[in-house]
């Protein structure tokens, strides 16, 4: 995920100042996420340096002046390039469950069945939450961004549970 390009995307809709950028990201683009202020300004500085955005200072009567950021032509090109290229598929295979299973399998007293049971309980608990939250999302007219994230969560958890079944079967064959 690239905060840099997310900011370019938000600015493509129109000029925004720092605070507005941050709240648009947190509330509209990626719901329920957190983006710290330092990260926003550091990123903006880099974008200014690279000539992808420019800013102007707007004087305010009762408050300090604020900087309003806008996209440069170069910035627009960079945004187009990002959208036009395939992302690197987010496939982090080095998960902790895998590591635990591999360790448990090698240890003489290693209880891999116990590991699977625990991991499965955890996954089921979260799937229980996610499926029902997803069901409610349909009923309560939840923003599309949220329902799509819930779908992703449900499917990932399902995949994880199915993988655990396979681990159980394969390890069971190895140590009956």
């Amino acid at each position: 995920m690239s905060v840099r390009h997310a900011i370019l995307g938000l600015l493509a809709e129109g000029p925004l100042h720092g605070y507005e950028l941050r709240s648009a990201y947190e509330n509209e683009l990626v719901p329920q996420s957190r983006l710290n202020a330092g990260q926003v300004y550091a990123t903006l500085d880099r974008l200014l340096r690279d000539g992808l955005v420019h800013h102007e200072v707007v004087a305010q009567n009762d408050r300090p002046d604020k900087k309003v950021f806008a996209l440069t032509a170069q910035g627009r090109d960079e945004l187009g390039r990002w959208l036009g290229h395939a992302s690197k598929v987010d496939l982090d295979l080095r998960n902790e469950t895998f590591l635990k299973l591999m360790v448990a399998r090698r240890l003489p007293e290693g209880d891999w069945r116990g590991v699977i049971a625990l991991e499965r309980r955890g996954a089921f608990e979260r799937l229980h939450q996610a499926t029902q939250a997803r069901a409610r999302a349909d009923r309560d007219a939840t923003p599309l961004s949220i329902t799509l994230l819930l779908d992703l969560a449900v499917l990932k958890l399902e995949g994880l549970l199915e993988w655990l079944d396979r681990c159980e079967e394969a390890l069971g064959k190895e140590t009956p």
């Binding site: 995920m1 690239s2 905060v3 840099r4 997310a6 990201y25 990626v30 719901p31 329920q32 996420s33 957190r34 983006l35 990260q39 990123t43 880099r46 049971a117 309980r121 089921f124 608990e125 979260r126 229980h128 939450q129 996610a130 029902q132 939250a133 409610r136 999302a137 309560d140 939840t142 949220i146 994230l149 819930l150 969560a153």
Partner: peptide, 29 residues
């Protein structure tokens, strides 16, 4: 071989909040 009671479901927003990975990652400089 196993029984699991699943905890009651919180609100949809709570569920989402408990799902990690949504916070923005640090971009490489």
């Amino acid at each position: 071989v196993e029984e699991q009671t699943l905890p009651p479901v919180k609100s949809g927003a709570d569920v989402l909040a408990s799902l990690e990975g949504l916070d923005a990652p640090e971009d490489a400089p």
